[in-house]
Design a protein around this nucleic acid. Structure first.
Length: 465
DNA sequence: AGTCTGTCTCAAGACGGG
DNA sequence: CTATCTTGAGACAGACT
DNA sequence: CCTGTCC
């Protein structure tokens, strides 16, 4: 996940955008963290066995995996002890997109993944449980565990409608959080003003902070151009063009301004542009294809017509598998169209009367980055409260079998950090930090509910009609 | 020369005792 | 009691412009 | 710092 090679490109082309700070520099600051990614990392990293090739994770007596809880507990304590106030943002998902190729690809991946595992697990009935765990990213069970843990620890969380990274970026943009801590460079594409890397590693080596504005200046791009750059370099939503890597992508965008014009200029040459990158018009009547419409693209020899499933592709896109509300869908397409128009105003006719234009994949990717589905960050308020000591002990010690001493030690650290936090609050009382000091309606634990509302059980097309 | 692709390898969290 | 097996970033070779 | 352990 992320943009392929982006970190290196920034280091090479815009080094002034990266600065290193010690942890202390972030004392008292709030930081958004992609919880789902953290959970995933914990599940992978926290296992035992020799060398690093063992699959067994930490479990309680009942056999339930506890690796993610162990990891999150420690990491959260560490952050709070450093004076950093984290907000954990969960993926809402699925990253369902209303485009043909994207949907297809995602579903294929998911299906392949689950089928593979199913096949594996058919051999062993016991492991069917494990299959259910590792559904897509972090399973619902793991997320629920972590939400519960966070609430007991007095740490706020929320569930994004879709991608957590997009929600994190939105929070940072309006200053609800100071920065986003993540290893995922996708976050930059959502225009996070400050991205923190190495937040997780030990205290002595510094945190790397990437300043979005400086990065744009260093690269010499606008925000829209940066998004196009990321898409060209290779993002999660589209395939990339063979032969174009980070350097070429940057050069091309700088030269031509946006993907449309890049395509116009390179498609004549040797680059072989994947069919899903090209605007395709769905024509009922074959003869009505205007000569000007498809922007001079190299004739695709292998692509396009050869694909037997192609016709179905658009159908699949229309049909959509899941929760699919028509309104949402239309909204999405409309958004994509608007974006296209903005970026390429001088393009020849985008759509012909009566004909349906199929969006190129990059247009939809662009729409995803420009207008991601998020909760209005202005309506979200976070509060760090006293840890629920008894609840934590019951959950971690009694239910999960954690070592009582370690748990108590952790709680002690929580309380200590909380004391320090209060102190700081008093100190900075006279500084207008902009927090809604007296706005009475600071929600305590559930910012999420506003969030959780829309989702229900979209996962398996649940409703039988 | 510079750039991109493919293949390979490795390590991935955090803690505390020694 | 035993086999278990992902993802991404870095190093390097090789092809291409 | 290295290594085993956490559950």
């Amino acid at each position: 996940m992320g943009i392929k090679g982006l970190t290196k490109l920034i280091a090479d082309e815009a080094p002034e955008a990266i600065k290193e700070h010690k942890v202390e520099h972030y004392n008292g600051r709030t930081v958004a963290v992609d919880a789902s990614m953290a959970i995933y990392q914990f599940l992978i990293a926290i296992r035992h066995g020799s060398g690093g090739a063992a699959a067994s994770q930490l479990t309680n007596e009942a056999g339930e995996v506890t690796s993610h809880i162990q990891g999150l507990f420690n990491r959260t304590i560490r952050m709070l002890a450093s004076g950093i106030k984290p907000v954990f943002v969960f993926d809402g998902k699925p990253p369902t997109l209303k485009g043909g190729e994207l949907d297809k690809r995602r579903e294929k991946r998911e299906k392949a993944e689950s089928e593979l595992k199913k096949a594996q697990e058919e051999a062993n009935v016991e492991e069917q449980d494990r299959q259910s765990k590792r559904l897509v990213r972090a399973g619902k069970k793991e997320s629920a565990d972590c939400k519960k843990l966070l609430e007991l620890m007095g740490v706020p969380w929320l569930e994004a409608p879709c991608e957590a990274e997009a929600q994190c970026a939105a929070l940072a943009k309006i200053g609800k959080v100071y920065a986003v801590a993540t290893e995922d460079t996708d976050t930059l594409t959502f225009a996070t003003p400050r991205l923190l890397r190495n937040m997780t590693s030990a205290g002595d080596n510094p945190i790397k902070e990437i300043d979005y504005k400086k990065m744009l200046e260093g690269l010499g791009l606008t925000h829209a151009q940066f998004i196009d750059l990321c898409i060209l370099m290779g993002c999660d939503y589209t395939s990339n063009i063979r032969g174009i890597g980070p350097k070429s992508a940057l050069t091309l965008i700088k030269k031509y301004g946006d993907i449309e014009h890049v395509l116009e200029n390179i498609s004549k040459g040797k680059y072989q542009v994947p069919p899903e990158w090209l605007p395709r018009i769905k024509v009922r009547k074959p003869s009505s294809l205007p000569p000007s419409a498809p922007p001079s693209v190299s004739p695709v020899e292998e692509g396009d017509k050869a694909m037997p499933g192609d016709e179905n592709a658009c159908k699949t896109a229309e049909v959509d598998s899941k929760a699919g509300m028509e309104g949402e869908k239309e909204e999405g397409i409309k958004a994509a169209a608007i974006v296209a128009r903005e970026v390429a105003p001088d393009e020849p006719a985008k759509s012909v009367e009566g004909e349906v234009m199929e969006m190129p994949a990059y247009v939809m990717a662009r729409a995803l980055f420009v207008q991601p589905e998020i909760h209005d960050p202005a309506e979200l308020n976070f509060k760090w409260v006293e840890p629920n000591e008894a609840g934590l002990e019951a959950f971690l010690i009694d239910s999960l079998g954690f070592n009582p001493d370690r748990v108590k030690s952790g709680i002690a650290k929580l309380k200590a950090s909380r004391g320090a936090m209060q102190q700081k609050r008093l100190d900075s009382f006279f500084k207008p930090s902009g927090s809604s000091s007296t706005s009475s309606t600071t929600l305590k634990r559930k910012e999420a509910p506003a969030a959780a509302k829309g989702k229900g059980k979209a996962k398996f097309g649940g409703k039988k009609k």
